[in-house]
Structure formats: structure tokens, C-alpha cells
């Protein structure tokens, strides 16, 4: 079938556009950013907190720390709440209730990040400022807003992981007289482990990469925050804040920050993909 082969070939070419896009992105971000890292020196880039573009100082250490801190906070909140939602939906509710909870996840994921950021500014920031002290725009505020934003990611991937556990595991445990909660803790969490870890890792990716909401609630000061009530600047918000007016070396430095971000994300992505494909293989092998 000649026609069949031609169509197959065309479709194959098109199918490569995703990977080609990824390669293009990597190529251009690296091309713009990597030379600057060498020019500044990798130590002065990664391990210094001095970011003064006008003086040619481009140290992103504080921003890397800031990103890590808000990500950790976000995962603490989004991870716990997202996992609870997943457990409630898959272990402790019937299909109707689970069906009713599903739109909650979809809608949470659908709300624009700028809206989250704005509501954070209007509600959480003043609460923190008035009751806990500090400027309000802080690591804590940022963690809470990001926590809500990563929740749907963690929840939906965890749900998939729980659903992938063979029903016989669950029934077997209940048949041995374990309560549903014991079954959840001892059987389901263990069986779904790699999927749950993938969920958390992908959630981290979301938190690391989020930009607009972070700009609005983080305060964006350049120092390494000394408490969770201090303001913070992340890699992403730094790029978005300064890209509008940066030029020359400064712009290249922002791309270098992008390179840093890209590398972190690719490590997280690869880990998550490897974990979930391991799980798929284990399942296939057990058949």
C-alpha cells in the first residue's frame, strides 16, 4: 500500500514536532544564556547573591534559594491537601461523590494564575501582615498561593496512581479484616508509591515554574529570605520582572536564569517520567 506508507511518513514527521519543539526551546535558551554563565564565571553566577545588572554582577544564588523555599512550602501545603483529596476520592467515596469532586480539581486547575496571585495579595498578604508581622508579601504567602495552585496537579496524578493499583490488592486486604484506612496506609500507599512520588515531583515542577502569581505575592526583594515572613524573589519572577526593559548582557543573564530553570525542570520531568514508566513496566511484567 503506497498511499498507506506516504500517510504514515507524513504523520511521523508531524509527530516529531513535539520533540522538535523541545529541542528548539533548549537550543535557543542555551544559546542565549550559556555564554554569559561562562563569561561571568559559573561560581559568580550560581553561588553569588549579588544581582546588580547595571554593574555587571549576575549572581542568582538568592533566587535559587528563594525558588527552593517557596517550592518546599508549596509542596507541604499542596502535597498534603492534594493527597488527601486523592485518597478521599479514590478510597472513601463512591463513584457519584468522586464524580462530583472531579470538577473541583479541574476548576482549581483552570483558574488563571494571575487571579490566584491577586486574591493572595488581597486576602492572605494582609492576614499575614496584621497577625504574623513582616510585610505580608513573603515566602509564606507565596507558599500558600502556590500550594493551592499545585494541588490539582498532585491530586489528579495521585488519583491516576491509586486507580492503577489492581483492585484485587484492595479487596484482598479488606478480606483479611483490615479497615479501609489500614488498607489505604499499608497497601494502597505502598502499591501506588512510584506514581505518588511522580505526582509530587510534577507538582514541584509546577511550583518551580510558576511566575505571575509569585511576582504578585512574593515581594521580590533580592536578599535570601531569613524567615518565612520575609519577601523573596524566585528565578521565574526575576525573569518576568526584568525582561521588559533588559538589554545586552542583562537580557543574556535573564536567559541564563532561564537555563538554570530549564535544567531544574528537565531533571524533575525526567525523574517523574522514569518513575511512571517504571511503574508501567512493572505492571506489564507482573501480568
Amino acid at each position: 500500500m503506497r498511499q498507506d506508507r506516504i500517510i504514515r511518513f507524513i504523520l511521523m514527521l508531524v509527530a516529531f514536532s513535539a520533540i522538535a519543539g523541545l529541542a528548539l526551546i533548549a537550543f535557543f535558551i542555551f544559546k542565549e544564556g550559556v555564554p554569559l554563565i561562562f563569561q561571568v564565571g559559573w561560581r559568580d553566577f550560581f553561588l553569588s547573591s549579588e544581582w546588580h545588572p547595571s554593574e555587571g554582577l549576575f549572581g542568582v544564588f538568592a533566587m535559587i534559594m528563594g525558588t527552593l523555599m517557596v517550592t518546599a512550602g508549596a509542596m507541604l501545603i499542596g502535597g498534603v491537601f492534594g493527597l488527601s483529596l486523592a485518597i478521599v476520592m479514590t478510597q472513601f467515596s463512591g463513584p457519584r461523590l468522586a464524580g462530583a469532586l472531579k470538577p473541583v480539581i479541574e476548576l482549581l486547575a483552570g483558574i488563571p494564575s494571575v487571579v490566584y496571585g491577586f486574591i493572595g495579595v488581597k486576602t492572605i498578604v494582609p492576614l499575614i501582615r496584621d497577625h504574623l508581622g513582616g510585610p505580608g508579601l513573603s515566602v509564606l504567602a507565596c507558599s500558600i498561593v502556590l500550594g493551592v495552585m499545585v494541588l490539582p496537579t498532585v491530586a489528579s496524578i495521585s488519583i491516576d496512581a491509586f486507580r492503577a493499583v489492581p483492585r484485587s490488592f484492595w479487596e484482598g486486604s479488606l478480606a483479611l479484616g483490615a479497615t479501609r484506612w489500614q488498607t489505604t496506609c499499608m497497601v494502597m500507599l505502598k502499591a501506588a508509591r512510584s506514581g505518588l512520588v511522580a505526582a509530587v515531583i510534577l507538582g514541584m515542577g509546577r511550583a518551580v515554574g510558576e511566575t505571575m502569581a509569585v511576582i504578585m505575592v512574593a515581594g521580590n526583594s533580592l536578599a535570601i529570605p531569613d524567615s518565612i515572613l520575609a519577601p523573596v524573589r524566585t528565578l521565574t519572577s526575576n525573569i518576568a520582572l526584568e525582561m521588559g526593559y533588559a538589554s545586552g548582557l542583562h537580557r543574556k543573564a535573564l536567559f541564563a536564569a532561564g537555563v538554570t530553570l530549564f535544567v531544574i525542570i528537565m531533571i524533575l520531568n525526567t525523574a517523574a517520567i522514569t518513575l511512571s514508566s517504571n511503574r508501567a513496566r512493572a505492571k506489564g511484567g507482573a501480568k
Binding site: 535558551i29 511566575t211 530553570l261 525542570i265 525526567t270 517520567i273
Partner: peptide, 27 residues
């Protein structure tokens, strides 16, 4: 082949929007 294509798609899904922005800007 499918593993590579899927990996590309999965990775692309995780790239932060600001990186897409930087790329779209230079490219």
C-alpha cells in the same frame, strides 16, 4: 520512536510558561 515522541511531549508539558515566553521571544 514512540518512547522518544512521548518523552518529548511529556517534557514539553512540564516546561514553565516563562521559558516558553523566553523562547518565543528570541525565536
Amino acid at each position: 520512536l514512540t518512547t522518544i515522541i512521548r518523552f518529548g511531549a511529556d517534557c514539553l508539558a512540564g516546561i514553565p510558561s516563562i521559558i516558553f515566553g523566553l523562547f518565543g521571544f528570541v525565536f
